[in-house]
Nucleic acid binder design. Structure first.
Lengths: 234, 234
DNA sequence: CGGAGGATTGATTGTTATCAACGGTGGTGG
DNA sequence: CCACCACCGTTGATAACAATCAATCCTCCG
């Protein structure tokens, strides 16, 4: 599903790459942009596809994944609202992008978007800064997946999830237990952390038995003892 | 040791971020740049230091490393000649940078370099493109370190090393065995691949016993059967 | 109510880390 | 020039962690 709409009521207007643009520049961008819905599980593009679009995540969550020749899978990044999609000046995509949840993106055909970058220095700077930030994220993730134990990975993952903006609010009292819904199923957590489904499940069970977390529902998590969880994460 | 010199005789003039610049822009860049030597083992900066410089690798090799709180180490990137160092618009460095070999860099104070980016679109585009390329590299490395076995990692590492430009030349006959010197010691290979020294050593020994490689000297490697090595790498 | 996909739990295996000893190499100073 | 020492690499024995294989249990749907 594809539709056009104005930027005025955009969910991520202030947080995305559009933030530094004035009204005129925003108008130009709107003229090449399209809103697009992606259903949960749907693939936006496959590794090796021609790189035809750049854009922004508006809602939902997307995941970039890499595969070995024999089918082992690794999630290399998760994209949340306001994150940038695509690679300007690249001919081919390197990773498969699919939707973890029903999502919406704002997409621009790559070449016109590149023209925008060239004529709007502030836009280009923003995209460059995001690329460097994601580079640091990916490199940090390298440390996590290689040098941390399964227990540390799972605990760290829960801390990251609890720290996401969308989630902060659901605390009953300012320093009481936090409860939230994971936007991932077990297999997806395993993909992100470089573990198996079974190992993720066992680690969650251990944390529950230790009284550090609760698992009120299939996707729900309650952090009962954040300090202990942080200690567990190392 | 610090010295100034012209760009005319620069080793990486055509391959580095300076490539798209005309003579005038190059002159501006020269006026803020300094050549700097870094001895093997020396640290250029530590994670958390103020981000004061950007620059280029001219010769040698540098490595970015991340540490867990309790001292486990992971190499997150290796920088070769023409690679970019630093993060424009960032206040702090995220990773420690040290020299694997005696190296030379061309460094620019960060803030004046940012002014150059703003006034020279081609330069900014080049830096942005490199950031995206390195981002893909780091994400690919995530697949390697999490989903490949020790045997695959070591074999893949040797293939990568054999494929580097500096090394291609040392082939006796066009399709004969390739011999080259690794710019890494065993511990550094282990850091890159997310393994231990002992595991790297054992995998190399296995490959030698299988007749796929030779280990003529402490750093030297001969690839006797490239097809078998590629099969081993998966 | 039945079925399918997902999650949990259990038993076992396998890979790699860890601990430990030894061998080789290169550099330094006598 | 040689001897020693420190560092690096190899090899072996063992242990631990997580993967794999397998069965059962939920939970959400139709």
């Amino acid at each position: 599903m594809i539709s056009r709409s104005s930027c005025a009521d955009c969910e991520v207007r202030e947080r995305s790459l559009c933030a530094p643009l004035d009204e005129r520049a925003l108008g130009e961008l709107t003229s090449i942009g399209q809103r697009r819905h992606i259903r949960r599980g749907e693939t936006l593009f496959w590794a090796g596809d021609a790189a035809t679009i750049c854009g922004n995540v508006l809602s939902g969550a997307l995941q970039l994944t890499a595969l070995t020749h024999d089918g082992r899978e690794q999630a290399v990044a998760t994209l949340y609202p306001a994150d940038f999609i695509g690679r300007p000046y690249a001919e081919e995509t390197v990773f498969t992008v699919k939707a973890l949840a029903d999502s919406e993106i704002c997409s621009f055909p790559r070449v016109p978007f590149e023209r925008m970058l060239e004529s709007h220095v502030a836009l280009e700077r923003r995209v460059m800064a995001e690329a460097f930030r994601k580079l640091d994220d990916a490199r940090s993730q390298l440390l996590t997946v290689t040098r941390q134990t399964a227990a540390e990975k799972v605990a760290g993952f829960l801390i990251d999830m609890a720290g996401r903006d969308e989630i902060k609010s659901s605390r009953a009292t300012p320093d009481g237990p936090v409860t939230f819904e994971l936007p991932f199923k077990r297999g997806q957590i395993a993909d992100v952390l470089g573990l198996t489904i079974e190992t993720v499940s066992r680690q969650l069970t251990r944390l529950k038995i230790a009284g550090i977390i609760g698992l009120p529902s299939i996707r729900g998590v309650t952090i009962r003892d954040e300090a202990a969880l942080r200690a567990w994460a190392g």
